[in-house]
């Protein structure tokens, strides 16, 4: 060290102290952020923790899911999502050591987590969890398109709208006149206008809610994926209502949620 005397010793120490002080503040800051996330791992909260009108969620029966992907396209038809944006996907999980690579099909919408890791990171609060029903939404007019939320979501449930179009829209067929009913905003995707350049995600088709925020299955005001499901594997409903189909299923059946260890507490359950 003496040989390469870079700093005068006193100066060096001073310098280090300065760096250290800065780092300390950074550390405190980031640990504060982390705390907000980690606290939920320790506590187990009852489902109706939040005082709110509805607690929407899904219970997806993996035994009934046949992997047909009707949900993927029903969602596309409902929300008019562009190429590469798919609010729900069906993936084939090949469990290790399962003979013959026999797959398990899982459809995966946004989980509308109780402790979403995506909303807290948004620098402009454009994405947030709605108080009234727990649905995680994106305010297209506010979103700046930084995509931090996409990196923060552990379930890849968020999609960036790059502005690409299907041939039917590129070639100006009648279909290009149809707007997306999302958030009851009825936007048409136009060059450089929202939702192009925004992060997009499943909304549990909240545009089908009535004034009071209720869905109605009989009238077809129900998430598009659940409506079309060929195996009738996707159950949707209000966990606050003890007599709803979803509440009954959670009571009666065995289920898992994905990546429990992250403490996000998804509102989508998989029956096994």
């Amino acid at each position: 060290m003496d040989k390469h005397k870079i700093f005068d010793r006193r100066e060096f120490v001073e310098y280090l102290i300065s760096i250290g002080a800065g780092s300390l503040v950074t550390a405190v800051l980031s640990s504060g952020l982390l705390n907000a996330k980690t606290s939920s791992i320790v506590e187990t909260r009852p489902l109706n923790r939040v005082k709110r009108k509805y607690h929407y969620g899904m219970v997806i029966d993996t035994r009934r899911c046949v992997g047909c992907r009707a949900c993927v396209l029903a969602c596309k038809a409902e929300n008019k999502t562009p190429p590469g944006v798919s609010y729900t996907v069906v993936f084939e999980e090949i469990l290790e050591n399962r003979p013959n690579d026999k797959p398990v099909f899982m459809t995966k919408p946004c989980f509308h987590c109780e402790n979403p890791s995506c909303t807290d990171v948004c620098p402009v609060s454009a994405t947030y969890k709605r108080e009234q029903d727990g649905i995680v939404v994106v305010d297209y007019d506010r979103c700046i398109g930084c995509r931090y939320c996409m990196t923060a979501c552990p379930y890849s449930a968020r999609w960036f709208d790059f502005g690409e179009n299907y041939p039917a829209i590129e070639k100006d067929t009648d279909w290009s006149k149809v707007p997306s009913p999302e958030y009851k905003q009825f936007r048409k995707r136009e060059h450089e206008k929202s939702p192009i350049g925004n992060v997009r995600k499943c909304t549990f088709c909240l545009h089908l809610q009535d004034e009071e925020g209720k869905y109605n299955k009989e009238e077809g005001r129900w998430p598009a994926c659940a409506k079309t499901c060929t195996g009738k594997a996707i159950h949707f409903g209000d966990f606050n209502d003890p007599n709803s189909e979803v509440s009954i299923l959670l009571r009666e059946r065995q289920y898992i949620r994905l990546k429990e260890e992250l403490g996000t507490s998804p509102n989508v359950y998989y029956l096994i």
């Binding site: 939404v137 305010d139 297209y140 007019d141 149809v178 707007p179 009913p181 958030y183 009851k184 905003q185 009825f186 936007r187 089908l208 077809g220 005001r221």
Partner: peptide
């Protein structure tokens, strides 16, 4: 979030 009642009337369910 703001909604578009005109769009709803024209294109809604």
């Amino acid at each position: 979030i703001r909604t578009d009642p005109v769009g709803l009337e024209k294109w809604g369910r």
